[in-house]
Amino acid sequence: MVGVLEIKDLHKSFDATKVINGFSLAVTEMTLQCLVGPNGAGKTTTIDLISGRQKPTSGEITFREENITGLSEHEIARRGIGRKFQVPAVFRELTVRQNLEVAYNRETSAVRNMFSFKPDGCAKRLEEIAADVGLTERLGIKAGTLSHGETQWLEIGMVLMQDPAMLLLDEPVAGMTEHEMDKTVEILNRLKKTNTIIVVEHDMGFVRRIADVVTVMHMGSLLAQGSIADIEKDERVREVYLGTEDDEESVH
């Protein structure tokens, strides 16, 4: 089966350290695929390589049948890949509304944007998305004053404003309260009906509630892939990952 995103034999080394080591992946349209694995497995680096923040040492990344390997960040974003960062990156000095307006990137030409003040459709889309991520009441305040959970939602909202063909979400529930996480689960389960999503996540409890497909990475390569039930039965996965996860949970 041909995926909307295909990664073939990806390698990435920093000096002598091999971070990604022959990783391949295919992502089907309209699925939510979770990328899990212990610390240092290369999950965030994979997201960096897809979104152009890092260039692979070798290998090929194809998006909608186009080779996007080695393109710069803005070129990849323009092809419809939106990303959220592990540490939420919003424009703290701008208001929530302005943050969302910046993310409405139908027109990216600097010269044409000099003569544009209110882009078509932006206000309407902004209201919808603000309601989606529950920030309607907060549009007028500076993003720097939002709570941690709200900042995470704002960044998800910004990715949505891009109307991307694919969303890359790096730890979208990190630091969220139980209640905030419930709300995020609800948002993601709604989004995956119309979007292709890759979520990098540590928390298996959260993965269980959202994933269609789970991909386990270990030492920069693919360890296992399948439904959450398959993954949880897999012996190798238990060994490298779920074992430690269970230990963590027993501490809570």
Binding site: F91, N99, V102, N105
Partner: peptide, 28 residues
């Protein structure tokens, strides 16, 4: 006050983030 201005304000805040929204920061 234009959209160009809004994006410049954003990249003054965090130019790295602006790239991932599809804007060519160097041109701005």
């Amino acid at each position: 006050q234009s959209r160009f201005g809004l994006i410049v304000q954003a990249l003054h805040n965090d130019s790295e983030r602006v790239r991932f929204l599809g804007y060519n920061v160097a041109i701005y």
